[in-house]
Amino acid sequence: MIRTRNLTKKFAEKIAVNNLNLQIDAGEIYGFLGPNGAGKTTTIKMLTGILYPTSGEISIMGKNIRKHELEIKRAIGVVPDEPRMYHDLRGKEFVSFIMDIYDVDREEAKKRFDEICDVFDIDYLDEFIGEYSHGMSQKLMVATVLMRKPKVLFLDEPTVGLDARSARVLKMLLRKYADEGSTIFMTTHILEIAEKMCERIGIINEGDLIAEGTLDELRASGGKGEHLEDIFLSLTGANDEEMKEIVEGL
């Protein structure tokens, strides 16, 4: 479903993503992890057609993103790291705009949207988006993406700003969609979520994919520790002793 070949993005002299090769199949939940500034969001932006790569190829659902950009955008769903929308639209107007732009079956989408609103407690659609809190915007963004039930989902830090109940509901929904054949590509800093939800995990650091696979495979590729957090920290070069020393000194 998602394939990249030698994907590279440079910003002036800085290489944000370096020769990234990914292959993610249908029904898989793939966790894409990395420290701040590692290249996660840049990768998602390239995979979703927001940014053009400097070099390399991307194929989503078997189609090259350069040649079929709009077709792919219509088929995928993306929850960006910041849920920014048009401040001067009401929530319901934004939902209607999305339904029309994606040309979805309104009846079916509305039914699904109402159900999602029910589980996420979205009862503020008459208000202007500019008056929403971060969590409210995030829930609306998630709802407008999930109502289309896309075949491929990209989520950049999807649980940030969500309350515990909404975060739990989102995780359950993602599991359900994956079981039904959707591909899910997500980034998160909450490693417990990645550990519990993702079949495979890719770790990117300074633009390079430094490890990829299941937990066992990550351990086999040099990651030390029982939990994903330990493995992640050891792979990204964080020194536990050094951190302890700094904390004690504070």
Partner: peptide, 19 residues
């Protein structure tokens, strides 16, 4: 004052088409 919301029963909000 920016957090005054008229809560509406979910599902009762009509989503008019922009077409």
């Amino acid at each position: 004052i920016s957090r005054k919301y008229k809560k509406k029963e979910i599902g009762k909000v009509s989503i008019a088409s922009n077409k």
